[in-house]
């Protein structure tokens, strides 16, 4: 697969909870190396889209194909997709009973069947990359939120994923820690990683994203180049949302 090829294709997916429709025939595709920011009001289905892409939620209709593998009920397909797709959560979700190093080395050893030394070597390189080389033997509770989120990013990268999903990675952080996480994400984007980022950090989206997707009511209502989207949004909901954010910020 070369840069620019479609790596994730989402075709008319529907996700319902009871009579509530969280995703309403959403179709979108993502290309290798692309950084896409997903924005929109709370409850509009942004997290649900990310979560269906690695099957933390099962879609009720439509098709999702990741790196040529269709997400269906075949557990092998699901595991294969999950191994290629890393996810970073708003609440970090580090394994609290494990050291930073063990958090990062667990999946490569269990899933990729790497030897401990190899997994540790990779983990230490990644910790270096996210600026936490000195913290390998600490437990998550001994780290700040920003540090925990950087560990979570390193943990996901340790699986050498082809795609990284970020679900509001800085929303749970104190303001002074937001930048250290965004910095790591910027570096990652520069390195060519395919990234889907749900975020309220408009500065980041404007600067780093190749494309912005705006969600409202379980649908994508606007999609485009960030410069154009932020200066001249066309959909009234997007206009209202952006002006609200500006006033709040």
């Amino acid at each position: 697969m070369s840069k620019g090829d479609v790596i994730i294709s989402v075709d008319k997916i529907v996700k319902r909870w009871g009579s509530f429709t969280a995703l309403n025939e959403v179709s979108v595709s993502f290309k290798e190396g692309e950084v896409v920011c997903i924005i929109g009001p709370s409850g509009s289905g942004k997290s649900t889209l990310l979560r269906t892409i690695n099957r933390l939620e099962e879609h009720d209709a439509g098709r999702i194909v990741v790196d040529g593998i269709e997400l269906d009920n075949d557990m092998k397909h699901i595991d294969a997709v999950r191994a290629e797709v890393g996810m970073v959560f708003q609440s970090f979700n580090l394994f609290t009973h494990m050291t930073v190093l063990d958090n990062i080395t667990l999946a490569p050893q269990r899933v990729r069947k790497w030897k401990r030394e190899r997994a540790e070597k990779t983990a230490r390189e990644l910790l270096e990359r996210v600026g936490l080389a000195a913290h390998a033997h600490k437990y998550p509770s001994q780290l700040s939120g920003g540090q925990q989120q950087r560990v979570a990013i390193a943990r996901a990268l340790a699986m050498q994923p082809k795609v990284m999903l970020f679900d509001e990675p800085t929303s749970a952080l104190d303001p002074e820690m937001v930048n250290e996480v965004l910095l790591v994400m910027r570096d990652l984007a520069k390195s060519g990683m395919t990234m889907l980022v749900v975020t309220h950090e408009m500065g980041f989206a404007r600067e780093v994203a190749d494309r912005v997707i705006f969600f409202d009511g379980g649908r994508i209502v606007e999609e485009g180049d960030p410069a154009q989207f932020f200066s001249r949004p066309t959909h009234p909901r997007a206009q209202a949302f952006l002006s609200q954010i500006k006033h709040a910020g």
Binding site: N54, L56, D79, R82, A83, V85, G86, M87, F89, S91, N93, L94, F95, T96, H97, L106, A107, R110, V111, A152, R155, A156, M159
Partner: peptide
């Protein structure tokens, strides 16, 4: 045991079995 940790384990590609063995069980036992 927080469900977020289970989801994180699953999103890393860990099977249900290893998620239980490595993530849920040690914390549940504690």
């Amino acid at each position: 045991v927080p469900t977020g940790q289970v989801e994180a384990a699953r999103s890393l590609g860990l099977s249900k079995f290893y998620t239980f063995l490595d993530v849920t069980l040690p914390q549940a036992v504690r």
